[in-house]
Design a binder for these strands. Structure first.
Length: 678
DNA sequence: ATGCACGCGGTTTTT
DNA sequence: CCGCGTGCAT
């Protein structure tokens, strides 16, 4: 076959990765792809190349870290194949592109009957899971222990880590939750109850999507059935997978044939979710003969000075398994390291710089401000709002977390799966006069009924529910097709929204948005699954999400910035305590992960990079005598020895024209007010 | 039984 | 500040 023209645009290593594999199907391949090395493009080309050479796209499994990454990849594959073949493959041909969790949900749903699951199972998001954990916690009387028992979210985090790391509970507690170690016995009991509750309620949490999948794969018959559905399995961001995911992968393709994994150990930033770089390091040796390894170390994204600074930061890492990145993009401009007296100064200057860059032709969308923790952007957001700069924030709170959205989604979930007690408690208590007790009775009755959905019509109304009940039942049991069913729920919910929230107008807008999204789905089930596994991740202040064609600045946690790039990048709060976060400096491993976070942040920049170092912070509510400020130091990841990679400056606001004004004589307002009644 | 007022305490990052 | 548990009035 004549050499396809798309191969000409690739460098030698990229081409080797794209065309790798002589066998049918080819042996296992590991691609170590440095930041900005054209990883996504290489992966897309490899998939396209397989298809161009006759692979059936419906028999390719493509697993990525987010659904956004999956659709980007799919789009590119379509473009490349379209150019190469004349006719592109249909958009639907790549049937199996998604996240580990999304694919897991699909496999479990498809095989539900055979593995003893009700196919109508609901999927709980993190908060729902924590709520269920809380119900169990109360049930076992753990909420009123003499010394305080760990909070529901902590319990869930411990449980989740145990599942995903496949480590004994004792080890998990010792290594990651030492302040909870005294509760090991109680936690074990709690987790047992939690698992039973999930099963009784026909509910799966995030971890179950992987755990149940792994358990399916442990059965040889099922493993062959599931694994046999694909000729090629490609995994992106392999450095951020955990033990459980690796186990699933190895069971899918035990001999490694058809398997490609891509990743970069220098960008591993999800250890808190039990991801382990061991997966990527041990991958080659898991097979006999070992997997081939191809390294992409040429960076196409950043200028040389940016790369030099990033390399210096990661160069000090305790362990390094890969390469220094190199580039041919010369520039005289070093990254900036700017100190400020306060965070407010930092916010002001960053906005100044952003606007300057926009004046000189860099749109807001081509610029980003990154930070370690969602709350670090608070002052910046205030400044942006004050100066009317539109922005969209990724990471942190999502609009799905707001009470009114959760209420409506819970109604839909309860309609599909009346055994879901978390949804049930939430929804039933919306009815005035119905509290935990009455809600519990209704749910118990539904639980015992042979057909819970029908039972909702017949169940005795709660004593004080009044005239609301028939309308509620009607809304819940409607036969309206999707998405009209959502409108029925909204109609019932609307008066309660107005009753419960002062700002019901703004919240109604969110629900409009939700209805819009719902319209794009064929069924409530698909809608709920997708929304839970891949929630719309941007929030943007009170103003609502800007229109798609509008220009807006990107604000993002470093975690949510993974895989992305911008011409200009500002990193906030590069000080000890923020980056590394003072919460995660317990162990050397945790500190090393924080170092990689800074590395990831810096390598997002194409042309311009600046790191902010505010020296004074206001810390609120840390001492009971009110707010205080603390002084902070430049991050330990930029020691004096590598300062020469940066242009170091200090910025303070101009004080021009500022004349101190004398204060007027004091007045006694309180006395005046008293005198009004004298 | 529900719902509200009060007081205490508090590990980010996400599928 | 916010969520959570407790205690009291309806």
């Amino acid at each position: 076959m004549e050499r396809a023209s798309y191969l000409d645009k690739l460098n030698d290593n990229q081409r080797a990765a794209v065309t790798f594999g002589t066998g049918e199907p080819p042996g296992p391949l590991l691609v170590i792809a440095g930041a900005g090395s054209g990883k996504t493009s290489t992966l897309a080309h490899r998939v396209a190349h397989l298809v161009v050479n006759g692979a059936d796209p419906r028999r390719i499994l493509l697993m990525t870290f987010s659904r956004r990454a999956a659709s980007e990849l799919t789009r590119r594959v379509e473009r490349i194949t379209a150019a190469a073949l004349g006719t592109g493959i249909a958009a639907e041909a790549l049937l199996w592109a998604g996240t580990f969790h999304g694919i897991g949900a699909r496999i479990l749903r498809d095989n539900a009957a055979a593995i003893g699951l009700d196919p109508d199972f609901s999927i709980h998001d993190r908060e729902d899971s924590a709520d269920l954990m809380n119900l169990c916690r109360h049930g076992l009387g753990l909420s009123q222990t003499a010394s305080r028992f760990p909070a529901k979210s902590t319990c869930l985090a411990i449980y989740s880590r145990k599942i995903n790391s496949e480590a004994p509970l004792g080890d998990v507690l010792r290594d990651h939750f030492p302040w909870c170690a005294q509760w090991e016995t109680e936690l074990k009991r709690l987790f047992g109850a939690y698992v039973e509750a999930k099963q009784a309620q026909n509910v799966l949490d995030y971890d179950d999507l992987l755990l149940a999948w792994a358990q399916v794969m442990a059965d040889p018959g099922f493993a062959a059935h599931v694994g046999g559905a694909w000729d090629h399995v490609l995994i992106d961001e392999y450095q951020d997978t955990n033990r459980l995911q690796a186990r699933i992968l190895m069971a899918l393709k035990p001999d490694g044939r058809g398997l490609t994994v891509v990743g970069d150990d220098a960008q591993s930033i999800y250890a808190f979710r039990a991801a382990t770089v061991r997966n990527i390091l041990d991958f080659p040796g898991s097979f006999a003969p070992p997997a081939d390894v191809i390294t992409l170390d040429r960076n196409y994204r950043s200028t040389q000075p940016i790369l030099a600074a990033a390399n210096a930061v990661i160069g000090a890492a305790r362990e390094r398994f890969t390469k220094d990145l190199w580039t041919e993009r010369a520039s005289a401009e070093r990254p900036q390291l700017v100190t400020y007296a306060t965070e407010a100064d930092q916010a002001r200057h960053v906005v100044d710089r952003v606007l300057e860059d926009r004046e000189t032709g860099t749109t807001l969308k081509e610029q980003a401000v990154l930070f370690r923790t969602s709350s670090h952007s608070a002052q910046l957001e205030a400044e942006l709002t004050r100066r009317n700069v539109p922005y969209v924030k990724f990471g942190g709170l999502k609009f799905l977390d707001s009470a009114h959205v959760k209420d409506l989604l819970a109604m839909l979930r309860l309609g599909r799966n009346p055994r879901d007690r978390v949804a049930g408690f939430r929804v039933l208590q919306l009815i005035p006069g119905v509290g935990p007790k009455a809600a519990g009775h209704v749910l118990d009755a539904l639980d015992l009924a042979p057909d819970p959905r029908a039972a909702l019509r017949d169940v005795a109304p709660p004593p004080r529910s009044g005239s609301d009940w028939p309308a509620f039942v009607a809304a819940m049991t409607t036969d309206a097709p999707w998405p009209a069913a959502l409108d029925k729920a909204r109609d019932w919910y609307d008066p309660h929204l107005a009753r419960l929230h002062e700002d019901s107008e703004a919240r109604r807008g969110d629900l409009d948005q939700l209805a819009q999204i719902a319209g794009g789905y064929a069924s409530a089930e698909k809608f709920l699954t997708d929304l839970t596994l891949d929630p719309p991740d941007a929030t943007s202040d009170q103003a609502g999400v800007p229109l798609k064609d509008e220009d807006y600045l990107i604000l993002s946690t470093i975690h949510s910035a993974k895989g992305q790039e911008w011409r200009s990048v500002h990193v906030l709060n590069c000080v000890d305590g923020c980056l590394p976060s003072d919460l995660g400096t317990g162990t050397t491993d945790e500190v090393e992960e924080e170092r990689r976070l800074l590395y990831v942040a810096m390598t997002r920049a194409k042309d311009r990079l600046s790191l902010g170092v505010p020296q004074r912070f206001y810390v609120t509510h840390q001492s009971r005598n009110g707010d205080r400020h603390i002084y902070s130091l430049r991050t330990r990841f930029i020691p004096a020895g590598i300062l020469d990679r940066f242009e170091v400056t200090h910025w303070s606001p101009a004080r021009v024209g500022e004349v101190p004004r004398p204060a007027p004589a004091p007045i006694d307002i309180a006395a005046q007010m008293r005198d009004m009644w004298a």
